[in-house]
Write a protein that binds this DNA or RNA. Structure first.
Lengths: 201, 201, 201, 201
DNA sequence: ACTGGCGGGACGTCCCGTTGAT
DNA sequence: ATCAACGGGACGTCCCGCCAGT
């Protein structure tokens, strides 16, 4: 049926998603007016809403995509590493999950309809984190005096905190150094603890 | 000398702030329309804008007040204790700092003007946290292999994470239990570490 | 509670209704854009929708008012007389019931929600017509070989036809003469008559 | 010579007209969005606008076709009989002239351009009615104290009234009975009648 | 101090018709 | 002949803040 190739179509879709991500990230959901979405995507209202039913559908698709990417990275590299890279590359803050995160939190909080729709589509991240931790636990890399579920929850909490922190404003050089040390702390709290003993790191 | 005392005026202001807090918390900044503020405060448009220049001034005043309260509690009880109580009392999630926090983060992120104005007025919390930690460090309650600044940053990060988590939706019974264990973990990571010794929890 | 007198307020309301009537009449429901309503009423969007919740509420209020006026005239003068005056005064076509009528028919047909809301508010006209006919019947002015209900329905039908006709375009001089003769015919068909002779249908 | 016959083309045109009629009838002119026309015709935007210049041209073609059909039926059966069948077959209300009629009246009223274009194309119905009446008059079937033109206008008026009535909503069983009696009345008023005899009012 | 009528701007949505591709 | 991506305009709604009036 399609008159243009599926590739072409997917590319357009992605073009819209990318522009929209930047716009939502910079201005927030309400601030990302359709006018701004047009400018950011280089397409017209007609085009945008031809591909997505309405603004929320667009945001939802975008958030889902971001979450999926996040899951993949977490599976590959682990949460702590993800956080380290988040810290190291300021440009990822503008374009990636960071900007989306706060908007999801906010809309999840204020709009029950959105909460429902998001719950249906999100899912994966917590599962991925816990999965990776369980593999590490099996490999004996984690402390054993605390259930894995608690460790997972702990890391998620720190991630959320870091995202909030980064969303609020780019950290300066000192901030980055401090936050890196914080991540060391976090990592230490999860690993088999070779606790502060004379001579230990 | 005004006939109605300054008390009267402050009371009105507070009435508006309280209604507004509930409204901002439930609906978010953009969702808290003036219509809803009228309903929540029981006052009319005119009255509200008589006491506050515009919607943002109202929000700013409210956020400042909440931040101040937060500082006081932190100074008295410590951050971890604050977090424990946040967990224990679900009603505080609805009405207190939790809702405000997310909005501040969002607006700080998207509105440079707001960021500036907020920076001028907030300040205190980080200082309070660090102050308390330094007192504890002096008392020998904290691990010494990590600078106090890092510990402070760590706790702030966890707080932000917890607030995000709570803002997103009330935790159920199991969540609370898990999060409490997470806080144990956090506390352990800050205290003088009684490292994993055989038989110790 | 009102800060302006109730009179003032009612006058504004009426000003809006009158402007809106002209606009709906000239352009139809969809054609009466809010822009045009502003121009026709001399008030702003804000003012208009302060007095009426939305466009439909405005139209509904207006239609109800027109229907009420129609009822009053029918009670006083009778339907046939109303139709004669409709014919005689072309200006009434522009401003009165005529323009509203077709819009009600159309929206009643296409919008079930409107149908319901209109049914709740209209009511009166058919009752008024039948009431007046029953009084006439009691006075012996009507033919008796046909139930009053049928006569009422007949007159309503003719009224609807006339309104359709007038709505479509102002009649010229000859049209008026012809239509007047038609009304004679209609009147004759309702009055006491010497019906078809024995054996005739 | 086109490879696909003119038949083919006419069939497509008719397919579109039929779908469009249903759509215009159910939703009204403005309510019959191109989206709905696509669904109702089973064809795409492109196909529809390939066969008709724009939405109005489509409606005009459809209205003209309906009017032509109406003329044919009137010529064959007479207006009163047409009205009786309209009453008897509720399905004709949905699909036939009834819905179209109201839209023509509305658009004729509000859109001068449409009025002009419609006037050029319609014409026939009034002529057909009058023609048939004149034939009946010549056959002595009509009352002679009233000019044929008046009788024609009378019947048209009743038709318009009935169409308005039916357009507004399907009549229930009692309504049909009453309206049938009304049509008896109408027929009686047109046929040879026994005029007011001395002594009767 | 407080009310609420009101202005006017901006928003998301939707809609019609064009166009390049098939 | 048909399709669907797309442009761009206009719509009704709603919202914030001003200010005349009480």
């Amino acid at each position: 049926m399609p008159r243009v190739s599926t590739n072409q179509l997917a590319a357009r879709r992605q073009q819209i998603l990318d522009g929209a991500r930047a716009s939502f990230s910079r201005h927030g959901y309400e601030g990302a007016t359709v006018r701004r979405l047009e400018l950011a995507t280089g397409l017209s209202r007609g085009a945008i809403f031809h591909h997505f039913r309405d603004k929320e559908a667009l945001f939802l698709a975008l958030a889902e995509q971001d979450a999926q990417r996040m899951v993949e990275v977490v599976v590959e590299q682990g949460l702590v590493q993800v956080m380290r890279e988040l810290l190291a590359s300021p440009e990822s803050i503008e374009t990636g999950w960071t900007g989306t995160f706060l908007e999801i939190a906010r809309r999840t909080r204020t709009d029950p309809g959105f909460r429902e729709r998001w719950r249906e589509r999100s899912g994966g991240l917590a599962v991925a984190i816990r999965g990776r931790l369980e593999r590490q636990a099996a490999a004996g890399a984690l402390r054993t005096d605390v259930p894995v579920g608690v460790l997972a929850s702990y890391l998620e909490l720190v991630l959320d905190g870091l995202l909030s922190r980064l969303a609020t404003g780019a950290p300066d050089r000192d901030d980055v150094r401090t936050l890196d040390a914080v991540l060391d702390l976090v990592e230490g709290a999860v690993r088999v603890s070779q606790p502060a003993r004379p001579g230990a790191s």
